[in-house]
Amino acid sequence: MEAIEQRPDLERLFKESAEDLARYFSRRHDSGEKAQDLVQETFLKMARRLETGNAPVHLRAYLFGIARHVSHAAWKRTIYERKVRIDYPDDLTAAAEPDERVRAATEVIEGLPELQREILDLRFSQGFSYAEMAEALEIPIGTVRSRLHNAIALVRDHLRENNPE
């Protein structure tokens, strides 16, 4: 009964978020075809969880929380299949000449731990709020805020070092 009531929400969520989710998987796995499979897998898992009576606060954030697990499982499968570490190709947008500001920020961001990079990705790629990121990443909202602030402060400090005036 509950599942039937939640189905329209899921359909709406699919229409609203499938594209964003595909972009999320493409960014994390560098494969468009694979991304579509992972989107389907994520929505299947979401439907199953909703059927068990889970009532997430932020539906979209909850969806991305599942997507994160799906993404990691896919990554692990790929690693085991290939038995080698995946070396992703270098910067796909290298053609676009980055300015000094972006270059400085890149230097900082590539040195950040993965969780902090995930926070930046969800914030600037998906436009998530602190609360949504906390739900998707299954961490306290205070952690999201402090990690995000820390990353921005590091970028700011590096920009200031590179451009002291």
């Binding site: 990554w75 972006v102 920020a105 961001i109």
Partner: peptide, 20 residues
């Protein structure tokens, strides 16, 4: 700094790949 971070996220998806 926020603008630069935003630009990096948009331009450098390779920095946000799954590594586990």
């Amino acid at each position: 700094a926020i603008g630069a971070t935003d630009s990096v996220v948009q331009r450098r998806p390779d920095l946000f790949r799954e590594t586990g």
